[in-house]
Design a protein around this nucleic acid. Structure first.
Length: 142
DNA sequence: GTTCTTACA
DNA sequence: TGTAAGGA
């Protein structure tokens, strides 16, 4: 994908062929989506060969996800952008609140999230074989 | 060998 | 949207 390792993630440039292989979206679609203004390739005045940023790679994958769900291209793009905005809030929330994460099963993605305190109790997010849920626990005394 | 544009069944 | 053509 890269001959020289980029110093920053923003320096990463991915060819259209790789974007196709990774996302499952055809080159024809990628060019069409760009023509419609849904995505953009890095503009290089010296070359007509398209290169994409990591951001766009994710966006393409996201749009593809919603298309596979049955949405039209236009709707899938809306969904993707809406999702992106929502996740921004989720990330900030988690960064602010998340105190500690205990991994109980790496492969299955199980674990416990320490999400702070509420009403004098610890708020814990649980993810295990029974699904995801919250639990309130008494503050540990030392 | 890959990507580009244009055109069409 | 896929695919073929013809050039870069």
């Amino acid at each position: 994908m890269h001959k020289n390792k980029p110093e920053f993630i923003h320096d990463i440039q991915i060819g259209i062929g790789d974007v196709c292989k990774i996302t499952g979206v055809s080159g024809r679609q990628l060019r069409y989506w760009e023509e419609r203004g849904y995505i953009h390739s890095l503009d290089d005045p010296k070359s007509s060969v398209r290169k994409y940023s990591l951001d766009i790679l994710y966006k393409v994958g996201s749009i593809k996800h919603f298309i596979d769900e049955g949405y039209t291209l236009a709707k899938a793009v809306e969904k993707s952008e809406q999702r992106s905005k929502e996740m921004m809030v989720v990330r900030h929330f988690m960064v602010d609140c998340l105190k500690e994460v205990k991994v109980t099963d790496l492969k299955k993605g199980y674990g416990e999230l320490e999400l702070g305190t509420y009403a004098g109790q610890k708020v814990v997010g649980i993810r295990d074989e029974n699904g995801s849920r919250f639990e309130m626990r008494p503050l540990e005394e030392k």
